[in-house]
């Protein structure tokens, strides 16, 4: 099936995936369609393909990650690439090496795909300007996390059959969240109605300019929505700085059965993980019938396979090489 698609036309035109912002609705749909085929593949006994045979993929993580890194690793391996993991947080940074030095060092090893996570917004883009391979943003500061938004969209589209017209409430630490930014961009591009729900301390002061509906109250923000997307609240923001305490946060903003009751009866509950149970989400809800949190993880591998596949087609030697 893939072999037939392959010679026809490129999935996307880019060689990098730095953010959702650069994708058109057509690009997004094409990536989600390709992801669907990988969902099927991943459910088979033989999950191995050879699209990326001979390719070298480096996972360059300046910030600790478990699920995103392993998801990219698995995606690359299933497509036949040679995958190397590099966690830089501990070693080079402490020795004073700059991001660009690290990138140039890796570039000299001729990788084809570079997956980068960095704690500073814009760092991945900077790096992409200096290397000769495809760069995929696996999260840069509070800016973007495009594969998370794609996997969330895939999860929703497979459950609801569409994105157009759905009401999606994104709840929690919007201010610091790259997941929220990427999701807002993607969902709006695909015609969904996006709401953001958080205490004002966790909202950007210009939130009104995002084109979303802004709420500071869960009951109002969740009323009649199709999707409830919870965000993680970082430990250091819990005690008196951005919110007074975890118990107050849970009382007013934690997703429990009572607050979920304001959403549509068939609303889905999502969380990018890792969850703080009892802080932003109640276990009854996290493990409940409407939770698709584990499905999101499954979709993550498929979406990353699709992204690696699509971008590698545009590399020198790829099927759609210029």
């Amino acid at each position: 099936m893939n072999a037939e698609n392959r010679r026809s036309e490129p999935i996307v035109a880019q060689t990098h995936l730095l953010g959702i912002e650069a994708l058109s609705p057509r690009d997004i749909s094409a990536l989600l369609d390709l992801s669907d085929t990988y969902v099927e593949l991943n459910r088979q006994i033989d999950k191995k393909q050879s699209n990326l045979r001979g390719r070298t993929q480096i996972n360059l993580f300046f910030e600790a990650s478990t699920r995103t890194q392993s998801s990219f690793e698995l995606a690359g391996k299933r497509l036949g690439a040679d995958v190397m993991n590099m966690s830089v947080s501990a070693s080079s940074v402490k020795k004073g090496e700059t991001v660009l030095d690290t990138a140039m060092t890796l570039n000299a090893m001729h990788p084809d795909l570079l997956i980068v996570r960095h704690h500073m917004a814009g760092a991945v883009e900077l790096l992409s300007q200096k290397v000769n391979c495809s760069v995929i943003n696996a999260g840069d500061g509070s800016h973007e996390h495009p594969t998370q938004a794609l996997l969330d969209a895939l999860t929703i589209r497979r459950r609801k059959g569409r994105l157009q017209g759905l009401i999606v409430a994104i709840c929690g630490d919007i201010l610091h969240s790259r997941v929220a930014r990427s999701n807002i961009l993607l969902l709006q591009a695909m015609g969904a109605r996006v709401r953001i729900v958080a205490p004002s301390t966790l909202l950007p002061s210009a939130a009104g300019k995002l084109g979303v509906e802004v709420f500071t109250n869960m009951a109002e923000g969740l009323a009649g929505c199709d999707i409830v997307m919870m965000l993680r609240l970082q430990q250091e923001r819990m005690n008196g700085s951005f919110v007074p305490s975890t118990r107050e946060y849970f009382h007013f903003f934690g997703l429990d059965e009572a607050k979920l009751a304001y959403a549509k009866p068939d609303a889905l509950v999502m969380h990018p993980g890792p969850m703080n149970r009892g802080i932003e989400i109640d276990s009854m809800v996290a493990d409940g019938m409407r939770s698709v949190i584990h499905e999101q993880v499954e979709m993550g591998v498929a979406v990353r396979m699709a992204v690696l596949d699509a971008l590698s087609r545009n590399l020198p030697g790829g099927d759609n090489a210029p």
Binding site: N239, G240, S241, P244, S245, R247, E248, H251, F252
Partner: peptide, 15 residues
């Protein structure tokens, strides 16, 4: 307004 009137962390206004 702040925990222990210490001026560093806000209290639980809602509760």
């Amino acid at each position: 307004l702040t925990k222990g009137l210490a001026g560093t962390e806000m209290t639980e206004f809602g509760l």
